[in-house]
Design a binder for these strands. Structure first.
Lengths: 344, 344
DNA sequence: TGTTAGCACTCACATACATCGAGTGCTAAA
DNA sequence: TTTAGCACTCGATGTATGTGAGTGCTAACA
């Protein structure tokens, strides 16, 4: 167990390193207000902290740098909660300045403001479509072979895709079918649509529609809506400003990782537990993340979790500030969206 | 005017530099097969070429490097057309392997393949929506206040947006209005929609619709569809591999430029004249492009120009290869889309 | 017994300097 | 007109050396 003095030293080392990005030595520490004992004492304590794995040296006679374990302890136990400045608050409020029409717009704007505020990269996931309910299905034939199918949800989200019409299908049949589908499926949640078709609607269709067989598959495919949340990035190049990324190789692997959206999406989904989550360096099991930390928060409407907002920064990230900002944005976003869904 | 021997030397210098990225000296040149005279002669010729501004030294006793003027001359007069390898051809064909359903998909895939083939960054613009014609307009009320308006074009492109309904509007009126709009506007090109409403449809609406005044503006806004082509990037990080970008500052300004999509879009639009266009280094009047060249080609369906495909690479780019690839992809894309539009 | 002053030691980093080699321009001979 | 030869330039590379911020350890101190 760490003594109070060791904790103090660990905290001051990390605070200083986050601020200046330079290894912290015993002399520097001894000059801090909070620290009342000499550099020699500090050296002894630091040797212990190093042995316990909370700090590291970059080389044998250098100052100390926090290890991942150190950051972890810092985040879990030592974080001093930070108050947002009025300016920060103003910027966050500006996300909601205009009336919300489209969810995606506000989500995108959140990402933008988050990266502005933090100078790191921000990622916003969501909002999930799967719990939305079908408002209207429409199939609009373009020519003999193809049509575009449009699905509108109760939240105003629109999905569309091209479909190939079976050669045998009649325009009147198509219309009839769309009517039946709307009658039966409006109000059903998007995730259940496909299932419901086979369970309940297939029979009705069979009795009414001539080219039933060939259409059923087409329709089922049509309603098989991708349920992955969209991912919005902002400030992708902000990481280039961070001094730890002045090495081309690091930049390359980081950028490659970000561009490889699939893996990154998976990583974010792993962090979608409610509340603030911090994963530090190699805790993120994704190559390219060695020098990065990811902080995520979830937002929701009412009880239902809608998505995730996240900040990707160097491990030497301003954790307390970023957490404060994320908490605030997530909560404001949740409030706004709860309102929005209630009025829908 | 340059002599034949000067042209030969210029060509060999640029070919060599494009290949190896190192300043080219007289000794290196004298060993090339094509060159039958001594290094001393070459030195004399190079001094002349330098005086004329076609090549430069990186420092006083270094080999020569092509200047922008040199590249320009090379591209305009010295380019030896390159044949694509079977492997390249195969990859290009793979763009069109699947049946085309959605234009965007194929455009995106083109961008992907282009960046794969070249190891540079590719950008694809388009296809433009403005010459498409309205197939169907739909307004689906979500609640008392808001509705989602959906516009489908004859090419199957779907645009949607949220609108606020005037408080006074009746559901039956809304339906009536949508019917009128569809009757009058189907087949009208997207670019002319807004105009046509005021010129021809407004009067009809006035006589049939109760809350005419409040609706008209909403409708006009709804139909004011953004006519900018979408921009698809692929291989954004490919430039990081190029040895000329081993300088952090260069990477930063390049990445910042790419992320700043607006300006880049404008730049691309400037290069939208038909056929292949090459702009070298500072010919692109956009900061961050100093060390880059942009090669663009346009694609079309029938007579109508639809968009642009482009490659962004270092000034030391494999011009002839990239041009050959772009030409091929643009032409295949045009053929495919011409077909596609004919069947629509 | 915990704390501190003092000291020898380490190592990254900066500076200075020598060396090397690919390249140049110029001159004079072929 | 071409080319061989030569002195010269300059970036790159390697080596020596000094500086300073940092360390660990020991012994004296409160």
């Amino acid at each position: 167990m760490l003594t109070d003095r060791q904790l103090l030293i660990l905290q001051v080392i990390i605070d200083d390193f986050i601020r200046y990005g330079q290894p912290v030595g015993s002399r520097t520490l001894s000059k801090k207000d909070k620290i009342t004992f000499s550099s020699a004492t500090i050296r002894n304590e630091m040797a212990d902290l190093e042995e316990l794995g909370y700090i590291e040296k970059t080389h044998i006679s250098s100052g100390r740098v926090p290890s991942e374990k150190g950051y972890r302890y810092y985040v879990d136990h030592l974080l001093s909660p930070e108050r947002l400045t009025p300016d920060d608050m103003r910027k966050i409020k500006s996300i909601f300045a205009e009336r919300i029409y489209e969810l995606e717009k506000i989500v995108q704007k959140s990402a933008q403001i988050l990266s502005d505020l933090t100078s790191y990269t921000s990622i916003v996931l969501g909002p999930a479509v799967k719990d939305n309910r079908l408002k209207r299905l429409q199939i609009i034939p373009l020519n003999r072979e193809t049509a575009v199918a449009i699905i509108v949800t109760d939240t105003g989200h629109v999905e569309n895709r091209m479909i190939t019409l079976p050669a045998s299908v009649e325009a009147s049949d198509l219309e009839k079918m769309v009517n039946i589908l709307n009658e039966r499926l409006v109000g059903v949640s998007i995730a259940e649509l496909k299932d419901k078709i086979y369970r309940e609607v297939a029979n009705v269709l069979r009795t009414h529609i001539y080219s039933y067989d060939s259409m059923l598959k087409t329709i089922a495919e049509t309603l098989d809506i991708p349920q992955e949340e969209k991912m919005f990035f902002a400030g992708k190049t902000n990481m280039l400003i961070q001094p730890e990324f002045n090495d081309i190789e690091k930049i390359r692997s980081l950028m490659a990782m970000i561009e490889q959206e699939k893996d990154f999406y998976r990583l974010l989904r792993q962090n979608s537990k409610k509340g603030i989550q911090v994963t530090i360096g190699r805790e993120n099991q994704l190559s390219g993340m060695e020098n990065c930390s990811l902080i995520t928060a979830t937002y929701s409407a009412g009880e239902e979790q809608l998505g995730t907002i996240a900040i990707l920064g160097p491990t030497r990230m301003e954790y307390s500030r970023v957490i404060a900002i994320l908490q605030r944005v997530a909560s404001d976003l949740s409030t706004a969206l709860t309102d929005w869904y209630q009025n829908s």
